[in-house]
Design a protein around this nucleic acid. Structure first.
Lengths: 221, 221
DNA sequence: TTAACACTTACAGTTGTTGTAAGGTTGGTA
DNA sequence: TACCAACCTTACAACAACTGTAAGTGTTAA
């Protein structure tokens, strides 16, 4: 069941939206308390957020920005009038789509469907700053390019991405590769790092991995 | 340099769009010949397509659909009036955003920026209906799951996806795998199909490939 | 200058991918 | 029901990719 969270202070409008969405088969939750909206939404973990920009406590734009920073899903912004400034502002803050009130039922549902489709089929890639990594198949993406990492390359890079931008010790990497940090084969690890760097060179990402002498490795950014 | 391709038959409008985009720092290319637009765009490999739906030769919607099937995106659709039906139709065909003409300069640029940002980190996956395929690494995605196909498996599935839902003949597949349809090794192809199906079973996608006796294979949907 | 640390390259064992071969199953037709 | 062509499955060996080992060459900081 697809979950949608509505953030709208006008109770009449809110009821109408809930009604439309529920009849369309969505599981709808509305925010009633406008303190700390971002935390509430994060807890609800909806598949889509319907966000009015005119709110009592906090600007909808602020909320939009915070949600995007937390990597929370598609956001459809609602605004009362066709304010161009509002629209531009919202888009720049990372809103995924924009709709003016009062809104046509079919248009609303079409926009929502479109957003959900866009995000649903998307794999859950891990953000590495200037690239993304599929943690499952170790497919590496940069812009529209993609390439495959071998199992060892992928496991090392994944560890680095997950700890970014902190240092990952050799013993940690050793544990990841061979399940133990007891008897580290320093050289084997080294060879695998060389191989990873060589592969990353294909996407001009070689200098992303930084060596911290005596400590380990880390990803820039 | 970000490349944008404009598909617009009204030369006045086209010039204006080109001017706006060039002044904004984009590398702009316009389609002049409206035969086989999709192939032209594929060759240009733009970072974004600005597509008018009212075209002489072929419907903009058809082009939109074909582009999406080829994994080319993002697509910003232009339409003359605020036709709700056009908008809904476009969104359902996978357009990524929608704008009415005549369009405000700032709004156009904001929409484009937004689309580019959205797609920047994103890999260009090809939509296979209930799954997506990275045409480069042959990584297969379904929901949040992903797995890797071998080279042969990937090439077969890619061909099927690109022709969906039409039938792909054995000789076509043979040409894709071995560069020739002259001396088809029916059995070798068959074995590769069995292997692909077996792999797809892991994501419950096995029955996606349908056998058309005497003709070839096709993807459902 | 030196010793510890970091990096590179080549080689061989292992694993995964692919075409071949041989036999089984299915579906339309008489 | 019996037949045949089309389709499917499995096992095997040749081939390519990945990985650890070994034996070196650079680099850094005291």
């Amino acid at each position: 069941m697809v979950k949608i969270t509505i953030v709208e202070d006008d109770s009449l409008m809110r009821e109408e939206l809930m009604d439309i969405l529920q009849k369309a088969g969505y599981e709808v939750m509305a925010i009633a308390d406008f303190h700390d909206v971002v935390a509430q939404i994060a807890t609800l973990a909806p598949d889509l957020v319907l966000l009015d920009v005119n709110l009592p406590e906090q600007s909808g734009f602020e909320i939009c920005k915070s949600l995007k920073l937390k990597g929370i899903g598609p956001i459809l912004i609602l605004t009362s009038r066709d304010k161009l400034q509002d629209e531009l502002h919202g888009l720049h803050l990372g809103a995924d789509d924009y709709l003016t009130k009062p809104c046509n039922r079919d248009r609303l549902l079409a926009r929502i469907q479109n957003l959900l489709r866009r995000f649903e089929g998307q794999p859950s890639l891990i953000d590495g700053g200037s690239f993304s990594l599929d943690p499952n198949t170790f497919t590496l993406y940069k812009g529209s390019q993609s390439l495959l990492l071998s199992a060892n390359e992928g496991r090392i890079l994944l560890a680095l991405v997950q700890h970014r931008p902190e240092i990952v010790s050799k013993s940690t990497l050793s544990k990841i590769l061979w399940g133990t940090d007891q008897y580290i084969d320093e050289n084997a690890l080294q060879v695998n790092l060389t191989r990873l760097r060589k592969t990353l060179r294909q996407l001009n990402l070689e200098d992303q991995i930084e060596t911290i002498r005596g400590k380990g490795y880390r990803l820039r950014g």
